[in-house]
Amino acid sequence: MAENQYLYAVARIRCREQRLLNASFLEQLVTAPSAEACLRMLREKGWDGGAPEDSDAMLAEEQKRTWDLIRELVKDMSILDVFLYANDYHNLKAAIKECKSQNAFAHIYLNQGTIPAEQIRQAVQENRLDSLPKGMREAAEEARKALLHTGDGQLCDIILDRAALEAVRQAGEESGNEFLKLYGELTVAAADIKIAVRAARTGKNKAFLENALMECETLNLGALTRAALDSEEAVASYLERSDYKDWAPELRKSPSAFERWCDNLLIRRIRPQLRNPFGIGPLAAYILARDSEIKSVRIILAAKRNGLPEDAIRERVRETYV
């Protein structure tokens, strides 16, 4: 009867899906004359958070609305932690670096996480890492030590990014839900591939790759490491032999095309949830769909402000869920 647990929630999400931005609306935003015109159109659509010209506040408000709705609908939010770990580890990274720099940067923290950002900030500042969850505590100790001893910000980032990926993959597996497991696996695989490509481009060594790459079921890390040590083309060739052979042509096109492909693939994989009336899947898919549309709007607004041509914007806008 677990599938009947979210009937009320899924019915509400079905109604909310009607208000998601569709491809034709995003196209209207792309062809709008300016960022201000885009903001006006979004406000007419109900995106009315923040001051009239403050797009950051508007997007933050939309993200908050999504999570407020989900928190209202789901009693045990731990099953959806898989989507929030990235924010937790971002906040941890910010807290450690803020602490090292001895300056306050309150605006760099993200609000949506499994632990309040302020709690993470205080734990790091007051050296009370014991108050953090086990996995996060170990990563925080290691990252802080690395930053203090070597002053290497990138090493600190690698430790925390890897810990975040491990948390996402583990949460996906432990959820017992196929959809969340798939999300965890795809997130880790996409991150590993991006790391391999960047490492190949910047000539990183084997030790770096071993520290940065996270194990997942669908990638052979040994082969990926060897490819990354060789060249970008070797990474693309490896992908052709893996479960992700469709990703190789995008990787050869450009980094932004590859990023877009990863996001689009996720949207395509979650689309069957539009027709699923049972279980947590439609709720999880709605969270991802909202994240994706907010990302697309952010890209369009940034591109409009920087005067990018419409075709260049279109190349970067993500596919829509509805």
Binding site: Y8, A11, C15
Partner: peptide, 14 residues
């Protein structure tokens, strides 16, 4: 019962 839960969800929104 299960149909009622889903119906309540729809009526909440619309």
């Amino acid at each position: 019962g299960i149909a009622g839960e889903a119906a309540a969800g729809v009526v909440t929104e619309d």
